[in-house]
Design a protein around this nucleic acid. Structure first.
Length: 149
DNA sequence: GCCAACGTTGGC
DNA sequence: GCCAACGTTGGC
């Protein structure tokens, strides 16, 4: 799950006393991942995009079920969507809980060099989604990389 | 700041 | 429903 650290970083999540809303996703594929693919208790990598360096910076956990993203109805929010019907919300989100921050950033170049991650979604050409699947195998490979903790 | 690769929009 | 134009993302 990607976030620009200038907007919301893993340090912000680490400081949060309660699970945080992963708000503002306005892409239908991501919406479907939130709705259909994620389950409470699933783990997710926190990825800093548009950062220096960009890459995986830590881990978190999905908490609870998907529910409508309140920012779509807030005219004061940058995520306001005037076309989203109140009685049929277009956008949903998940809450996430901080698990850990790694001691180093795993850049795309780092990940590309790791055997077994060749098929990973985030490494695929042209892939720009802010939320992408990770297989159990990929998770284990990454979590066992040296120097993370 | 460039630009590839998508997603979205809207005229027809 | 097609598709050109436009907007966005995000690494580099």
């Amino acid at each position: 799950m990607k976030s620009e650290p200038d907007c919301y970083s893993i340090d912000d999540l680490a400081k949060a006393s309660e699970p945080a809303m992963w708000e503002g996703c306005r892409n239908y594929t991501v919406r479907n991942y939130f709705r259909d693919t994620m389950s409470p208790g699933d783990r997710a990598f926190f990825y800093h995009s548009n950062a220096d360096p960009s890459g995986i910076v830590g881990a978190m956990e999905i908490v609870g079920d998907a529910y409508p993203d309140p920012t779509q109805f807030d005219p004061g929010s940058e995520y306001f969507d005037p076309k989203s019907p109140l009685d049929n919300p277009r956008w949903i989100l998940r809450n996430v809980r901080f698990l850990e921050k790694y001691r180093r950033v795993l850049s795309l170049a780092d990940l590309r060099a790791v055997p077994g991650l060749e098929e990973m979604f985030v490494l695929r050409r042209g892939q720009r989604l802010s939320v992408m699947p990770v297989t159990e195998q990929e998770w284990q490979i990454i979590e066992s990389l040296p120097g993370l903790r």
